[in-house]
Each structure stands twice: as C-alpha cells, then as structure tokens.
Design a protein around this nucleic acid. Structure first.
Lengths: 204, 204
DNA sequence: CGCCTTCTTGACCGTCTGGTAAAATCAACG
DNA sequence: CGTTGATTTTACCAGACGGTCAAGAAGGCG
C-alpha cells in the first residue's frame, strides 16, 4: 500500500484524511491534535483512518512534505533578469495570494516552526537555505549595480515572509483590529506592503 | 488563596510554575501541553502544582493576561509629538528587543493566535483595537502633514509587528538560514528593518 | 455469479490525561 | 516547644489517548 499503485478509494480517502488533518494540526499543533478528532473531521472511524496512515506521525510528515513545494515556489520565480522593483512586487503579491488561498497550510507551517521545527529542520537546511542563498546573491547583485537600495538581503527576505504570512497566521488579530467584514484586506495588504518595501516611509 | 494575600512560598512557587508553563505552552500549545510536563519542568509533583493552579486553564489564562501588558507597552510609547521617523525607528527597536528578550512569550502569543485566539479575542477587541486606532490616528496626522509617506496605517503596524515577532516565532527557520551562531542577528535585524521601513528599496 | 482483495468496523489494550482525596510533612508564630 | 495552618506526597479515578486485532462488508474482475 505504501507503493505508488493506489486504488480509487485509497486516493480519495487519503485526500479526505489529509484535508481533515491539515485543519486539526494547524489549529492544535502536532501534540494537541488527536487521531480521533482528525477521523471525526474526515467523517470516518479511527481504525479506518489508521488503515491509510498507520501512525499519527505519518499524516503530519505527509502534510509537511507536500507543503514545502508550494511554499518555496514563489521565491523560485524571482527572476535575476527581471526589473528588480517589479520582481520584488510580484513576489510580495504571490506570497499574499498564498496567505489568502492557503491560510491553513501557513498555520501548519507556523506551528511546526513554533515547536522548533523538529521535523522540518533537515529540509530547511537542505533545501530552503540553498535557495535563499541563491536569491540573496541575486538581490546583492541588484544592490551592487545600484538598482535597489543596499539592505541585508537575508533580513529583507525574512521581512517579506513575515509580513505576508502574518495575514494567515495572525488572522484572529487582524480581524480583531480591522473588523471581521474587511473583504479587501488581502488586496489592501498587498498594496500597502509593496509601497512600504519599495518606497519606504520617508516623504519624497 | 485566590485573594491577593500570598505567603512567601506561594509567591515563589507560582512564579516557578508560570515560568515552566510558559515554556511548555509556547512549544506545544494549550492542547498539546500537559500538566505533567509542566510539573516536571517546574520540578514539582502534579498534585502540588494543582494546589497552586487548580486547573490547567488557570495557568494558561494567567500567562496570557500578564503577557498583554508587556506586549502593548511599546506601541503606547509612540509619541505624537516626536519626530515621525525617529518614533517609528524607536518602535521597531523596542519590538526587536522584546523578540530578543522574551521570545518564549512571543511564541505563546503566536500559539494563541494560531488557535484563533479563543481566550484573547475579547481583550484583542477591547484593549488592543482602541490602542491601535489611536496610534493609527497619529500616523494619519503625520501623513496628512507630509511628514511620512501615505500608506495604510493599519497595514503598516501589522508589518512592524510581523517583521519583529518573526525573529522569535520563526527562530528555527531564521537559524537554519542564517546559521546557528549568528550572534548579532537581532542587531542586524533592527538595522535592516529600520532601513527598509524608512527608506524602502528603491535606489535614491 | 463466485472469488479474492480491499475496505470498514467494533471491541479492546496499555498508557497518559486532568483532576481528586486524604494523609503526611513542613513552616511559622506564640 | 507545641499547635495550627500551609504545603507536599501517595494513591487513586474516570475518561481520553494512540494503536491493534479479528471479523465482517463491499468492490471489482473473470
């Protein structure tokens, strides 16, 4: 069953389970989530769920693994040959779209970080870091040729990550401050962040 | 015992318990944290711990309540009569100091947000929102008189929160990218963030 | 249809969970 | 020093926890 040949029912049920587990893990964290709760959310019995994923750990790992691709994609798209301001603006936009369309995934990721990334630590050092280093080099080349201002590129990337993911991870706080019915808040966020990052606050 | 008159031992043990609970709750979340684990971390038996805080919930609420003061203080200091650029820079610095000196508190707060802020929701709407609204008015007045660039002030505040707290909440990721031994990372972060927020990235 | 594999279930297990009761120990004050 | 209240421990409980097992139900293919 662990091989790639899967029946129709397997494919369906695995998807249902992962979707349910995503919600529960994102809300309660790995330790706080229970197999019973995931099974209930998925609408199936616990033994049945464990037939597809023998261990609680398996579901969690599976979610994190499939998450990382989506997560790193936008950074990958940062084009060294594009216009710097445009590229950075596009990156911010893509990240805000992720926060809007995949908020639960963002929260799962945040939860894993809060725990000290016991599962993701390897892949962070093995996949994330090289990619970041590569894009840092791009940013540095833009800075060297005077196309963007000189700022520590690592902290610049962190800042973009932090600000965009904030709208998914701290949604409760954002809603408390902005009001629940703020429909265009992701659009407003993108606009504001692009302004801040590109122009800063000093009057021109 | 719930009144304000406390013996020496009560004062001491409550502090030890809260310190231990902070670590455990911040790492594992409310549901994932166990009274046993907190007691073990605090170096006392579970029934003894429950003698001071009869319910697991009591410890969690107590932590969150004492947290919020510290959390809102820096924003309170934003002076309408000060120099805008200086005030914002000082706010960023204070928030980075919080992330450096109270990272566990920051993670506890983040954990509560990820759960949808079931406990803090009231205080977010009752205390946080009015304070933010007030400071938003200050920022707007600075914008109106052309002392800083016009940006949605709510999203500006979110951006400062997100970027500074990122260094506490996503420490695992930051360390994976920057390397574990990056000693001056909080100082570098403050410098970079002040540059980004005040000057932006466009070359001058 | 018949047969074999896949899927689902209910009953169960040992451990952990938050919390309790009562007895034993300790601190402090006169 | 003794007594009284504060503190700590030991033993315990009912329910939840992750996970197993064997038996039954349902697909699916000739």
């Amino acid at each position: 069953m662990s091989e790639t040949k899967r029946t129709r029912i397997q494919t369906e049920n695995r998807k249902i389970i992962l979707q349910a587990a995503l919600e529960v893990f994102a809300r309660d964290g790995f330790r706080g989530a229970t197999v019973d709760e995931i099974a209930k959310t998925a609408g199936m019995s616990k033994p049945n769920l464990l037939y597809y994923f023998p261990k609680k750990d398996d579901i969690y790992r599976n979610l994190l693994e499939s998450l990382l691709g989506t997560w790193l994609d936008p950074l990958h798209d940062l084009d060294p040959n594009g216009d710097p301001a445009r590229e950075i603006a596009a990156y911010i936009e893509r990240k805000i779209e992720l926060a809007r369309d995949y908020p639960t995934e963002s929260r799962l990721f945040a939860n894993e970080m809060l725990r000290g990334a016991p599962i993701l630590d390897d892949v962070l050092r093995g996949e994330l870091k090289p990619l970041v280093d590569q894009k840092v080099a791009v940013l540095r080349s833009w800075m060297k040729t005077g196309r963007i201002a000189k700022v520590d590129p690592y902290h610049l990337i962190f800042a973009i990550w932090a600000t965009t993911q904030h709208y998914a991870d701290f949604d409760a706080q954002v809603q408390a401050v902005l009001g629940t019915q703020s429909e265009g808040r992701f659009h407003d966020a993108a606009t504001s962040l692009k302004q801040i990052f590109l122009n800063g606050l000093r009057p021109r």
